[in-house]
Computed example of a mutant assay.
Amino acid sequence: MTTTTGTLPEKFSVLEPWAEDWALATRTERYEKRLSKTIDELGEFYDAIAPHAEEAIAYLDTFDVKDLPEPETRLMHLLYSMIMVSYPVNIFKQPRIPDSGAAFFNAAVEPAI
């Protein structure tokens, strides 16, 4: 598992308890983490991060995405994980996509920034 190191930006330190588990650098890692959690655990994470998402996005928009400092990169990864769990929490009500059987989505490459 590839996590970023360091802490979150000071103004988002309230989210630090979630960063070690969820500030994951790749989509594959975020998806695997999602599948390893119960829907209640996903809900707790989502409910903790979502109220801060707009402010965090506005904050990150003040930086060049190609030159983010480590704390800001960690915050961005945390937001990516929140997005990864948003559909399971708000729509599916379970970690996996409903009615998908044994199907599994695996990205070959990460999108370019």
Rank of each mutant, 00 (worst) to 15 (best):
T5A: 12
A53S: 15
A23R: 04
F12K: 07
H52S: 03
K33Y: 04
L78T: 08
I83T: 08
E70L: 07
V85Q: 07
D67A: 15
L42Q: 10
L42P: 03
L15H: 09
S36W: 11
I49W: 02
E10P: 09
E72V: 12
W18C: 11
E32A: 06
L68G: 00
Y46A: 12
A48N: 01
A53Q: 07
D67R: 12
E10A: 06
W18H: 12
W22L: 03
D40A: 10
L75S: 03
Y80N: 13
M82N: 09
Y46R: 10
L24S: 10
L75H: 05
T4K: 05
T26E: 05
I83F: 12
E54M: 04
L75W: 14
K66H: 05
A48C: 04
S36H: 13
L68S: 00
E16A: 06
R74G: 05
Y80K: 11
V65M: 01
T26C: 02
D40K: 14
L78H: 13
L60W: 08
V65A: 08
E16C: 01
I83C: 12
E70A: 06
T4L: 02
S36F: 05
P69Q: 02
P88R: 08
F12Q: 05
L15T: 15
F12M: 11
I49C: 01
D47K: 08
L79T: 10
P69V: 01
S36Q: 09
Y31Q: 05
P51V: 07
I39K: 03
E10M: 15
Y59Q: 09
L79A: 11
R27Y: 14
D21Y: 07
S13V: 06
E32N: 03
E72T: 07
I39C: 10
